[in-house]
Each structure stands twice: as C-alpha cells, then as structure tokens.
C-alpha cells in the first residue's frame, strides 16, 4: 500500500509536468486545429533557459522560471508567425507536416555544438533536496515545488481564460473564428497570445522537469511532448480541464506501468491508451460528441 501511494505521488509529479505541456497543445489545437509538434521542443528550450538562468547567470529559482516562460513565449509566437500563419488556410496536413519540420529543426539545430550541443547536462538544484515522511510515504520538497508551481500556473490560466477580455476572445475564436472576427476580435493577435501563453507554460514545465529529473538534452522534449499530446486527447482536445485531468492520468498510468509491469513497456502503454481513446471516445473524457454536418 505504501508502495502504491509512493508511486502515485511519483506519477502525479510526472503528470503535473505533462499538464503544463498539454495545456499549450490543447489551447493551440482548440484555436487553430493544429497539432503543434514543435511544442515539446519549446518545452526543451524552456529547460535549457532555466539551466542557463541558474547555472550561468546565477539567478534565483523563481526568476529562472520567469526567464524560461518569457523566452518560450517569444519562441512560440515567433514560430507561429513564421511557419504556421502562412498556412492557416492550407490543408490541415500541410501545417502538420510543417510543424514536424519545425520540431526536427529545433531539435537538430540546438543539437549543434555551438548551440546546446548533444551532450546531456546536469540540471543544477538551486536548493538541497529534503524528504518529508508521511506515514511511510515519502515526499520531497522538489515534488512539492512541482505540484505547487504547476497548480499555481493552472489556476492562473483558468482565471485568465475565464475572467479576462482576452480570455473571452480566445474562447470566441476557438468556437468560430469568422464570427469572432466579425465581432471585432483581432484573430491574429488572439492566436499569437494563445501560442505565447501555451509556450510559456511549457517553458515553466521544462524548468520543473529539470529539477525533478535533473538531466537535460536537446531531444528530451520529443517523448514528453508526444505524451502530453496524448494526455490532451485523452482529456478531450481543446478543453483546458481535460488536459489537466488527462495529464495526471497519463503520468500515473505511466509510472504504474514502470513500477508494476516493465519500464520498457511504458511508452507502448501510453500510446496504447491513445489508440484506444481515439477508437472508443475520440472526443476524450470531457469532450462532447457531435456529428458532422453535410
């Protein structure tokens, strides 16, 4: 039982990191119907920005998160403007292929020696790791920080989307872009803001990932990125609470698979879930179904 609870906590830690990535996926998909494959790489860049902020510039941890968020927001907006915006009216698969191209480009470009380089780097811990015992179950201050920061950001996002003018505009654009435009919403700006916010969250996720699993390298975003996307689909793509729920489930399932079955099979289980969800309930756990109009 303690082992089970221990794995649950570990799973939630992973799930919260996924959630920060999945939110960007789901927001972008909700608004431009694009699987932004490069999103996992933005997450990776966030981890590196955190690394430099801590290790090279000696910034305190909260500031490192801010640096990563701002840097990733800028990167996300830049990618959208240069690579995706020109394809907004092209077939969806063209944009998807472009997104894969952008993803590969970021990975291989940062893999060059004069950028980040292929050698993995140890992520600095800005504080000593402390362990708290809780009835046989152990929880570290790192885990508490991951939970705390992730929850804080998600609450902030919910408030932003629910309460502000910009948040309302985002929801309007995701429901019907043309009508939103007619109502005087600047659709381009809203799309850029969406990419910016989503990327900022992924950046924060990168830093949290860095302190939780302290080794980073340019290809580190691929698998978490894909799995976060799976989580977004699981929860119901385009739905913000769905992305959070799906991510926590994914994190826990993956950790349990490693703990109870085999760690080599955990990727297979994650994507097995994906295929199952797509077949049984493509709208996800929290999505509503609807039929296509002819």
């Amino acid at each position: 039982m303690t082992y089970f609870l221990q794995q649950l906590i570990n799973g939630l830690q992973l799930g919260f990191v996924y959630a920060l990535i999945a939110l960007g996926y789901t927001m972008v998909y909700g608004i431009v119907r694009l699987i932004n494959f490069a999103h996992g790489d933005v997450f990776m860049v966030g981890a590196y920005l955190g690394f430099f902020a801590l290790a090279s510039w000696g910034l305190p941890f909260p500031l490192a998160i801010v640096v990563a968020m701002v840097g990733c927001a800028a990167l996300g907006v830049f990618i959208e403007r240069v690579a995706y915006k020109p394809l907004r009216n092209a077939p969806r698969i063209s944009a998807l292929i472009t997104a894969m191209g952008v993803s590969l480009f970021i990975e291989n470009f940062t893999n060059l020696n004069f950028v980040f380089g292929p050698t993995p780097r140890a992520f600095p811990r800005p504080f000593a790791v402390r362990t708290f015992g809780l009835g046989g179950v152990e929880i570290t201050n790192v885990q508490l920080i991951v939970f705390g920061v992730a929850i804080l950001l998600m609450v902030g996002l919910s408030l932003f989307v629910g309460r502000t003018r910009t948040g309302r505009a985002m929801r309007a654009v995701s429901q019907d872009r043309d009508t939103a435009r007619l109502m005087g919403i600047n659709v381009d700006t809203v799309i850029s803001i969406t990419f910016g916010i989503g990327s900022a969250l992924a950046g924060a996720g990168g830093v949290l990932y860095g302190i939780a699993y302290p080794q980073i390298q340019p290809m580190m975003g691929i698998m978490p990125g894909l799995k976060a996307f799976v989580a977004a689909v699981l929860g119901g793509i385009g739905i913000i609470p769905g992305a959070m729920l799906g991510s926590l489930i994914m994190g826990v399932v993956e950790t349990f698979t490693s703990a109870y079955v085999s760690s080599t099979l955990r990727d297979a289980v994650a994507f097995g879930i994906l295929i199952l969800v797509l077949l049984v309930r493509p709208t996800g756990l929290l999505g509503k179904s609807h039929s296509d109009k002819v």
Binding site: L34, I35, I93, V233, D267, F271, P282
Partner: peptide, 16 residues
Amino acid sequence: LRSDYLAIATLGFGII
C-alpha cells in the same frame, strides 16, 4: 479517423 487524428494514431502505432 480523420486527418490529424489518423496521423497521431498511426504515430502511436509506430511507437508501439
């Protein structure tokens, strides 16, 4: 499945 859903399902199959 349609377009990008099919893409992600086949991708998942490839990884499996």
